[in-house]
Design a protein around this nucleic acid. Structure first.
Length: 466
DNA sequence: AAAAAAT
């Protein structure tokens, strides 16, 4: 099956080809012909399956005919987060380059002026997060009765975030004879009800979860104590052939503190979480995509859908509370056929959380042991009574990161560090691998010495869509 | 339990 077999126009096929794709993914092959035939769709899929292009491509061809009218967008795509909305917009630009289509990105955290202007000029596609869309609607800046195509993306995520009432309001403003495409990674009863109410005779398409059964990702769990996490992380960053990594923490405060701590240890790290303003979020994400930083410490704002090519490692600095989030987080690596590694730190308090993850993924995550590291006797330390007084002391490494530097490993260390870490021979934690290292294909072009490489590897980090 | 999203 090729893109040429799906009924897309020649101009569109050309831009798909120019982007370097000729074979559609499972969801693209199933969805595109049906969307072109104006059918409603329920897609059980998440980003990483090529879901975005499965609606962007046919939408471009559908919108190619007809004309724009002021204040009346012709189609609407709803996304749960600003970053995802921006990513869909990038896709429209990439694949719509041979078409005369106007779009507007309606997200919060940025000035309304340009968005209002675009609406007044008339747009073919509106890409929005619910809050800003509702706001502009209530201000009378948008009419939705000319909107004949609606995409509800990441519906289960919308549910988690309390957007379902907004979605229902928005749906009721659209013409009833519109086409509706709904995508969701899971189908909880509320979403099922939403689909029953707002879709008519939808085609049901389900593709495998990419992360839970993605054999490209080598998954490990590491038993650590809470105070041993930072050292264990620094050790892995230095010794596991990390080229680019996303480190997830459960709390925004942890994200901030950990990013600072890694920077102080000389790592080229940035951060992203919802307390940062949108400019800062965009800037950090762009630096990561460009290779200006090699480590991104993130809250779950970045767990879903974000598509950065060439992420070699995902670290769950905290075990996620919701097992779904585990699947989303580790899915940031091992993308587009590349191999990736995912490490999850597990403290004794995380026993239930990790059990839920293993139940969901249907596999037992192999234990990875850091031998000789402070982290080793995790269960015992954490089980010990907390009022021992040692707890008052700052965890080693936080106040005096210099002293905590692990020795450089003999192997290549592609992680870009801003400065050379002092080399010390004492206390070399030894790694005991429980399985062989995955192929190092994505790493071969990186320099053998840290500090020599400051820019992106050509073609290595880029936004991909399919 | 947290994070996200309108201001």
């Amino acid at each position: 099956m090729k893109f040429a077999d799906l009924g897309l126009s020649d101009e569109l096929l050309q831009s798909v080809l120019d982007a370097g794709y000729d074979t559609p993914t499972a969801i693209q092959a199933q969805a595109i012909p049906s969307v072109l035939m104006m059918r409603d769709i329920i897609g059980i899929a998440q980003t990483g399956t090529g879901k975005t292009a499965s609606f962007v491509l046919p939408m471009i061809d559908i919108l190619a005919h007809g004309r724009r009218r002021a204040l009346m967008p012709r189609s609407l795509i709803l996304e749960p987060t600003r970053e995802l909305a921006a990513q869909v917009a990038e896709n429209f630009e990439k694949y719509g380059k041979n078409h005369d289509l106007k779009m507007a990105l309606l997200i919060g955290g940025v000035q309304m002026g340009d968005q209002v202007k675009a609406l007044q000029d008339g747009v073919d596609v509106l890409i929005a997060t619910p809050g800003r869309l509702m706001d502009l609607f209530e201000r009378g800046k948008i009419m939705l009765n000319g909107c004949s195509l609606l995409v509800i993306d990441e519906a289960d995520r919308m549910l988690d975030m309390g957007f379902i009432p907004d979605i229902e309001t928005i749906c009721s403003k659209l013409p009833p004879n519109r086409q509706t495409l709904l995508f969701s990674a899971t189908m909880p009863p509320v979403i099922k009800k939403l689909a029953d109410k707002f879709l008519s005779n939808p085609k049901y398409i389900e593709v495998a979860r990419p992360a839970s059964n993605n054999s490209n990702i080598a998954q490990h769990k590491i038993h650590v104590s809470t105070r041993g996490k930072r050292e264990a992380l620094r050790h892995l960053l230095r010794t596991d052939n990390v080229s680019t990594a996303i480190i997830f923490a459960n709390r925004k405060t942890t994200v901030r503190e950990l990013a600072k701590s890694l920077q102080q240890s000389g790592f080229s790290a940035g951060e992203i979480h919802g307390d940062m303003d949108q400019n800062a979020r965009n800037a950090e994400l762009q630096k990561f995509k460009d290779g200006a930083i090699s480590i991104l410490v993130a809250s779950d704002v970045a767990a879903r859908g974000l598509d950065v090519k060439g992420v070699s490692h995902v670290f769950n600095y905290d075990t996620p509370w919701h097992p779904d989030d585990y699947v989303h987080r580790i899915g940031r690596t091992g993308r587009a056929g590349a191999s990736g590694r995912a490490f999850t730190f597990v403290t004794s308090e995380d026993a239930e959380a990790i059990a839920n993850v293993e139940k969901l993924t249907g596999m037992s995550i192999p234990v990875f042991t850091l031998e000789g590291a402070e982290a080793a006797p995790a269960a015992r330390e954490d089980a010990a009574p907390r009022e021992s007084g040692r707890r008052e002391r700052a965890p080693r490494g936080e106040k005096a990161p210099r002293k905590e530097r692990a020795p450089k490993a003999a192997a290549a260390e592609p992680v870009v560090e801003r400065e050379e870490a002092p080399v010390r021979e004492a206390r070399a934690p030894r790694i005991q691998r429980d399985e062989p290292r995955p192929p190092k294909d994505v790493l071969t072009e990186l320099p053998s010495k840290p500090g020599e490489w400051n820019g992106p590897v050509p073609g290595f980090l880029s936004v991909s869509a399919l």
